Simulated assay, not measured.
Amino acid sequence: MPTAFHTRIAAELAEIDAQGLTKPERVIHSRQGPVIETGGRRVLNFCANNYLGLAGDSRVVQAGDRAAEAYGAGTASVRFICGTLGIHKTLERAIADYLGFEDAILFAAAFDANGGLFEPLFGPEDAIVSDSLNHASIIDGVRLCKAKRYRFATSDMADLEAQLKQARADGARDIIIATDGAFSMDGYIARLPEIRALADRYDALVMVDDCHATGFLGPQGKGSFAHHGVTVDIVTGTFGKALGGAMGGFICATTPVVELLKQRARPYLFSNALAPSVCGASLEAIRIAQGEEGDALRAQLVANAARFRGAMTEAGFNLLPGEHPIIPVMLGDARLAQDFAARMLELGVYVIGFSFPVVPRGQARIRTQMSAAHTFDHIDEAVAAFTTAGKELGVIR
C-alpha cells in the first residue's frame, strides 16, 4: 500500500481542520422535524430543508410503507432494462401536472437530474449561460456538456444580457439560461421576470433548479417561476426537501425533451430506479402540498420566517436580506462559524456553520432554515440561544 498517498491525504485533512473548515457529521436518532434527538438530547432543529414539515409526517411515512409493501424494496435494475414500475409513471405524471408541464422524468437524486440534463440536449454548436452562484450540480452538469459556456453575475441583468449578446455573436445555435430558482446558501430568489424577458429577446430557453422552491414558493407551492408569474422551459427539482424529505430528483419539460433524456441521460440510464417507498411518500407529499392544507403550511412558514428575521435583526445580527425561509446569519470567519454552531448545540439548537468551499472564503455563516412545523415558541427559543451565543462570542453586544 503506497504510504505517500495516505500521508498526503492526512496532511490535507489536517490543513482543512486547521482552517476551521472541517464539517462534522452529527448523528440523528429520531424522525426529521422541528425537534430532533442527537447526542442523547432533544434539540431544536433549524438547519433542515424540511420546509413544509412533511419529512416526519405520519401520512407521508405510511404512504411510503404501503408502496414498499406493494412493490418491494426496489427494482434491482435501471429503468430501461426492467426497472419501470407503475408507481414511477404515476409520480412522473403527478409532478408534471402539479408544476404545469407536459411530462417529467425521475432520477435517483436531484444532483443527477442537473448532472444529466445538459449533455443530451446541447452540443458544441449551442451555448449555456449560467448564473455564477448556481448549485454545484448545475456546474458539474454544464462541465459534462460540450456546449459553449458563459457565466453571468448573480442578479446582474446587464451582465446576463452581455453574455447573451456574446453567445449570439459567437454563432450559438440554441442558448439556454440556467439558474437556481432560489439560491440555497443565500436565500435569494432569482429575478425570473427579467430573465424571461431577456431570454425572449435573445430567443433563449430558461432552465430553473427549484429544489429550494418547489412545494412552498408561489401559488400552491409550484415554485419560483409561479411565485413570479412567469413560464420557464425546464424545471429540475427534488423530493428530498419540501416534498417529503426523502430523496430523488426530477426534470419537468415538454414530452420530446423528456423522451430524449430517457434515451440519452446517463444518470437515468445507469442508475437504479427510484425506490417505491420514496415514490409513495413523494406522491402523498404532493397531495398535501397542492391542497388547502398546503396553503396553511405555506402561510405558517412565511410567518415563522418573518418572526425569526425580525427578532434576529433587532438582536443585532447581520442577516442577508430576502423573503425566503433560508435566512443566513453572516459571521465571516470559518472558525467562528464552527464555534458558534457548537455553542448553539450546547444551548439546545441544532444549526450548522457553512464555510469554504460551500460558500466563498470570508463569507462563513450559520444558514438557518425555517419550517412550517416550527411554532413561535420554537422561533423565540432559537433567537434567545442565538443572542446568548452571539454575546459570548463577540458577534453582537
Rank of each mutant, 00 (worst) to 15 (best):
H324K: 05
G322V: 07
G316A: 10
M330W: 09
G310P: 03
P321F: 07
R298Q: 11
P325Q: 11
M330E: 13
I327V: 15
L297T: 10
R309I: 01
M312Q: 04
A296P: 00
E323R: 14
A303L: 07
P325S: 11
L336Q: 14
I326M: 13
E323N: 12
P321G: 08
A299T: 12
G310D: 14
N318Y: 04
P328H: 11
L297C: 06
P325D: 08
A305Y: 03
A311Q: 15
H324A: 04
A305P: 00
L336W: 02
A299H: 12
R298G: 05
L319I: 05
E323S: 15
P321C: 01
A315I: 03
L301W: 08
A306E: 15
G322E: 08
G294S: 11
A306Q: 14
L336T: 11
R309C: 01
M312G: 03
R307H: 14
A315D: 06
D333Y: 03
A315C: 08
L301N: 03
Q300Y: 00
I326H: 04
F308T: 02
M312Y: 00
F317G: 08
P328Q: 07
A311F: 00
M330F: 03
P328F: 01
F317V: 03
T313L: 13
A311V: 00
A303G: 13
G322A: 07
